[in-house]
Amino acid sequence: MKVIKIIALVLLVAFIGIQFIPTDRNQSSVVLDTDFMVVNNVPASIENKIQVSCYDCHSNNTAYPWYNKIQPVAWFLGDHIKEGKAELNFNEWDEYSDRRKNSKLRSIISQIEDDEMPLDSYTIIHADAKFSEDEKSEIIEYMAQLKNSL
């Protein structure tokens, strides 16, 4: 019994301990001139949907939920955000060459088409980030039109 108590105590102390390790937070209130929404004339309904479903990991500003202030969840999500931004950062859209925009749009379309994005591990918590079939085709159509206009 005593052993279990000690283990529980140790885990508790470790859990509290790791809360004090600082993490970089992906937060910025600056709207860059290069932002996808600023550069393109995006219809409001699509803008809102993309903000909610994509911007947490694909922009410089994450709307952090309360549980993301708790370690080790914050580390796990931090890695996801780092990877997501490296792949595609909507805030820096206009820094991409037309060639890369074309590539990015093609990937955006195919990933949404195949339900690979937004990630299941994300939508399981953020139910509002999930696309309905109608939203999917609306966004895909918009992205395809943007791709053709490049």
Partner: peptide, 18 residues
């Protein structure tokens, strides 16, 4: 003492993982 040692160890492991 053992308990304290283990605690330190776990914390160090957590930090060094990071």
């Amino acid at each position: 003492t053992m308990g304290a040692l283990i605690m330190t160890l776990v914390t160090i492991t957590a930090i060094s993982c990071k």
